[in-house]
Design a protein around this nucleic acid. Structure first.
Lengths: 347, 347
DNA sequence: GTGAAAGCGCTAACAC
DNA sequence: GTGTTAGCGCTTTCAC
């Protein structure tokens, strides 16, 4: 370990004054004599003095650290949201400690425990895929520890959150498929207990309804969000009757997997089966055909989540539950364009 | 803010004993009477007592927190290394605080300052692209604050590091191209001051040499690692004479950009120009044609970096500088296979 | 067996 | 203007 960093005491000893004088000198308190003040500041500068955050934390009961729990760090969606959180946190002098739940409720609970033990000032959380009970947030809510959920949320009445307008986006995506001539649109939905699954299903049904197409239960399948399970349900869909002429996936990962299965069967995208994803992962633009999806403003989501948390952490304000709903944006790409659009017909 | 968490004092008051008794009771010190010990432990359990890490940190001069500085969080390569660090850190009871330099030496210095101010117990760092001077690590090295570099490193004699065997990997990749009939292999290299650029150039030259092909300076171009710059130098290569029949990129990002430019010109990959990347980003398998690259054991790199750091942080041991060299593995995919390999000929 | 006191680094109320 | 003191939560040495 390195040598101890310099403390107020060191400076006080060197200058032959008391610790509190140094403390005050450093922050232009009352009036320390200007000369002394200068001497103190110069020495502090020279010795690279910075206040010990542990001592400050003890005193102020505030660590300037926030915890972030995400299902995983590696997925572009989460990585870029973390990036947004980090950028805003840095601007406001906060540190962020990251923990990943690996999509497991057990690890999520452990992460929560660890971060609370660390005495973070607040938490930003995206629920794991397995999280279908929510009592582990009781303590946090009761003790009024600032908490913000994003994307996969729960207890909306009690906890602030940042989400995108899943219903509208899913509806728009569905209508987009219909406008491209699709009649049998399948939906690969996510786990039933997740808000994102429910909302996207709702939007899907609204889209069908608005275009006077019937909702067909046999075209709706559920999967956990793994590649393997997505492949399995895709094959079930392709073997069913009617064979879907389009598949709308709850997220991109699911659809990438579906695309592989479709290609294996030598079916063409979008001619035989149109595909649309959801989160617009980085590689949506890089697969062939390029994947139509709704872009999430991920960086902004991260920044917004931190903003809400910051308000919650502000002790002066009465903390009120707020929800920010951001709009996702439909990006039509090749995977859904059965009918050549004039603007894209040169492709 | 939440109510104060329970402290030893609270338990002591409730039980009518002193703080030190509680402290000892909790850790089976000396002999506190078994009954009292049980009472203490039960109450601590009931009230969810956990020691305040700030107090412990002050006392022990140890925060159990390490800082990680990466060029960015979003790139798969870094995200998965972070994931490896996190997994190992969690196992050992450490927290990790992440900071990103956005490839800027200025931000890297700020991050360093911030993390030192936070009193992290150690640091794991990957240099930014802009980092061509290294004095900002003087203080850390002098004060013997545990530090480990990975991938992009400097001051190898003084600081432990985890790298992959760039020379061998680059050589193997070059020979692979030659075996596929390429004669004019261009190399898009990275910034000159980075070890990864230099080592990959060296491997490239060794590969050429081993196959008795001349090194042609006109086929070597440098670029910063941006998409735009990679596009620019790719076009320069395609306009030059001889036109390369293969391009070996310092990393995948560069090669993805090159691929786009090549497709724009209606050239075919690999028939007209074979392509090989380096880091094997996630989407290497998803572009068409799939990208040949050398896979980095990223998760393992993260875990290994933490292991080295852990040794450094172990005060008992004499700290010695160590370097772990991991092997990257060539994954031949479509983008380099000009000659049909029997095992892949059905594609 | 258990308590009192010092000290890790800092601030702020209170002396003088 | 500057010093003293208490206290944030904890461990540990020294008393009894």
């Amino acid at each position: 370990m390195g040598r101890k960093r310099v403390s107020l005491k060191d400076i006080a000893n060197e200058l032959g004054v008391s610790i509190s004088t140094v403390s005050r000198g450093l922050k232009d308190h009352y009036d320390i004599s200007p000369e002394l003040k200068k001497k103190i500041k110069d020495l502090a500068e020279k010795w690279n003095y910075t206040p010990n955050p542990l001592a400050m934390g003890l005193l102020k009961q505030k660590t300037n650290t926030i915890g972030v729990i995400v299902p995983d760090i590696v997925t572009y969606f989460y990585a870029s949201i973390i990036s947004g959180i980090e950028s805003m946190a840095t601007e406001h002098g906060y540190y962020i400690v990251i923990a990943s739940s690996q999509e497991s409720i057990k690890k999520e609970k452990e992460n929560l425990r660890n971060l609370l033990d660390l005495r973070v000032d607040g938490l930003i959380v995206c629920l794991s895929q397995d999280t279908d009970t929510f009592e582990h947030f009781d303590e946090i809510i009761e003790e009024e520890i600032p908490l913000v959920f994003f994307d996969r949320i729960c207890r909306q009445q009690e906890v602030s959150s940042v989400i995108i307008d899943n219903v509208s986006a899913a509806k728009e995506l569905t209508i987009h498929l219909i406008q491209n001539g699709c009649k049998n649109i399948a939906h690969i939905a996510g786990p039933q207990h997740l808000n994102i699954s429910k909302e996207r299903i709702e939007g899907y049904k609204m889209g069908l309804n608005e275009c006077r197409l019937p909702y067909r239960p046999e075209l709706m399948v559920h999967c956990n969000l793994s590649i393997a399970d997505a492949a399995k349900v895709t094959n079930e869909l392709l073997d069913s009757n009617p064979v879907p002429d389009a598949i709308f996936g709850v997220n991109d990962t699911v659809i990438f997997s579906a695309m592989k299965e479709i290609k294996k069967r030598k079916l063409r995208v979008p001619e035989d089966v149109a595909l649309v994803g959801f989160t617009d992962e980085f590689h949506a633009t890089v697969v062939e055909p390029n994947l139509t999806a709704v872009t999430h403003p991920t960086f902004e989501m991260g920044r917004e989540a931190f903003s809400l948390l910051l308000e919650d952490m502000d002790e002066k304000k009465e903390n009120s539950v707020r929800q920010t709903v951001l709009q996702a944006k439909l990006i039509p790409r090749e995977s859904s364009l059965k009918i050549n659009y004039p603007s894209l017909s040169h492709k």
